[in-house]
Amino acid sequence: MEERSAGVFSGKVGAAFLIPALFFIVVFLIFPFVWIFYLSFTNQTLTGAAAANPQFVGLANYARLFDFERWMRAGEFGSSLWITTRFVLGSALIGQAGLGMSVALAFYRRRGFLREMVYTLAVLAWIIPEVVVAFCWWAFLDWRSGTLNHILGSLGLGQPDWLFDHPLLSIIIFNTWRGAAFSILLFSSALETIPPSYIETADVVGASAWQKFRDILLPMLRGHVLTDLILITLWTFNVFTPFLLTGGGPVFRTQLVSIYTYRTAFKFFEFGKGSAIAVVMMLINLALAMGYLTMLRRRRVTA
């Protein structure tokens, strides 16, 4: 992998492979992006007077997002960002990546029914259309008749109204369930690329499981871990499915930034403001990615 800088083809031949993608990326990606960027400096709406005569408003849309006087009030941008941060930490980093790594390690170099069952069920949760998933989770979490509370009840445990009493926890668990398959599959495949001899050598010198993980597996997997984190962080930042479960409530307690954008752009058709939020979100993700990539580069240097 490290010798990738050596090209097989000349630049011209290589470029030929990129032409179709270039077309799509320029027409359907870069062009609309530039447009959105422009809209974020206007008061463009779809209905109402501003739809007929949109005005250039400079940085007003951005300033409104960062109006620190009300920034952390329920329903405002700052509080949405804070909810999103906890959601990403909980469901992407701890939930999906954590569960993904645990499952991948548990089934490291194993085959058989148990593995097939776990992997198939995880993938199923990942591929079912989101409207369907929303109904399944309503049924699962329902206060009176939900499956979860039936189980808790039969174990003699408390039966909270999940989406009401613990809304953020509920969508964190939900998103872990929804997306863990990607990390499971990625880490499983990554583990398979590690030559078994490395582990066997470690066994001979009597390393503990934790030492093997920390000193052998993790350094070799770091690239894959970062690929995984980059993608699931971004996906989780932008995921909209929790809206179908909670609508952002009760009282904004699950209003992720994606839902905040939806409320602005779709419910009230304020596309200027909505565009500004989208641009800010992109910049936050870019900053995170720069952090991740710096870590990746450090790995290359030390490798």
Binding site: L29, I30, P32, I36, N238, T261, G274, A278
Partner: peptide
């Protein structure tokens, strides 16, 4: 960066463009 663009362009804010 292209992935970032795609996250913006496939969001609700992009629907008018």
């Amino acid at each position: 960066v292209l992935i970032l663009f795609s996250s913006v362009v496939s969001g609700t804010a992009a629907m008018v463009p």
